[in-house]
Design a protein around this nucleic acid. Structure first.
Lengths: 218, 218
DNA sequence: GTTTAATTTAAACGAGTGTTTTAAATCAAT
DNA sequence: ATTGATTTAAAACACTCGTTTAAATTAAAC
């Protein structure tokens, strides 16, 4: 059943790296298969199509991350007192860093894939994630809303997408940014340091009071 | 010299809409020229290549927006008292909305183009903008830093990129998000409403105090 | 009005894409 | 060892892409 060092895995490993770096549509199957040192046709044999390969790459991470994240959120709920926004966001850090044990650079790759997916696939990935992982997602949103009850849910919808944009864009260009930061400020950040920097930023933005500014200066 | 209703303009008008909607690499010259009702070869005749067409599309907006934004920032400097972060970000709103007078949906298109460009062109657009519009950009950064002097410049570097990510990702998917918001919450937001929502979010994140969390719980 | 230059047109080029096909090789089970 | 299903291999297919070419058309200049 299994062969060599598993062609399927070799394809997934090569594909996720290239997808994260250059995006999905900019990555050809020929480039993937040559990096993976497998035959071109094996992609269609094992996965059916490029689109299904993309889904498989994402699912391999989401299937690990989502349950772990849900477990962390649940743990917050059973805590004695109300969790702060910082605590809720920070609860996702451990599941994210766990991905580094799954594969080298796993955390970065996962976040970059997520960003690429959201941007490239015109809402298609958004549908895929919400339908396949709706439960842990809803749990997270609920925890956030309970933590800042003064924010209406419509406003929260927007702020959570702002937050998604912040993390996704940051991670998509994290490599370039850490390089610049090292050159300009002598800072040497790894992915965890960047995550720890972004959490207070997002928490402050999500929690900021809503001001009724409808009659503001035009 | 000029012909018909200006082929060059017809191409730019059709291209910017398609680029904003579907991204640069997902938009073929054949699609652009068919929407513009011009011949395929006229793109290469007038612009030389697709890459130069992309630059021309962006420059047509940047040449209007950047000077206007710089002027607004300068006006803040001469104000009697120190400008708040909200005021600094809000100073960009008027120049942004001015683009709607330039062309229909100009504001949305410009912001979406900016987002697409930053994401798709691996730092290439970042270089283009900083070298061609470095002066107004530096002026903006300076104003932000003066407004929140308690943030070290290294931290500010990261936060401004978080901010860029927030706005860029939000605008790249603004159409989809406004649709969802309308369906789920009955909210009908235009681009200005979204901009007014995102400003407090970003301002709060940029200004949040830095806590020395190096010995935080792992 | 003829000549000259600028522009538009239709067609083709060459390279790259995802996918399919056909045959050979590999493997597990009889 | 032979069978039968998997897996790999190489090639071709059908298509799209950006770009180029060369002729036809339009506009400008004299």
């Amino acid at each position: 059943m299994a062969s060599r060092s598993d062609t399927k895995t070799r394809i997934l490993d090569a594909a996720e790296k290239l997808f994260a770096e250059r995006g999905f549509s900019e990555t050809s199957l020929r480039l993937i298969t040559s990096k993976a040192e497998v035959n071109l046709a094996s992609v269609n044999y094992h996965f059916g199509s490029k689109k299904e390969l993309i889904r498989a790459v994402l699912a391999r991470y989401l299937d690990v991350f989502m349950p772990a994240a849900a477990k962390e959120i649940s743990r917050l709920h059973t805590a004695p007192n109300q969790a702060s926004l910082d605590e809720i966001f920070s609860a996702l850090v451990a599941p994210l860093l766990e991905l580094n044990k799954l594969r080298a650079e796993g955390t970065t790759i996962f976040l970059q894939l997520l960003g690429r997916g959201y941007i490239e696939s015109q809402g298609h990935l958004r549908w895929f994630i919400t339908t396949h992982y709706g439960e842990p997602l809803a749990k997270f949103v609920k925890a956030v809303q309970a933590s800042v009850p003064h924010i209406p849910s419509a406003e929260m919808f927007w702020r959570l997408h702002f937050t998604l944009g912040t993390v996704v864009f940051t991670m998509a260009s994290a490599d370039a940014l850490t390089e610049i930061a090292a050159a300009d400020f002598g800072e040497h950040n790894d992915i965890e340091a960047v995550i720890r920097k972004v959490i207070p930023y997002m928490a402050a933005g999500v929690a900021v009071p809503v001001i009724n500014n409808e009659k503001g200066l035009l």
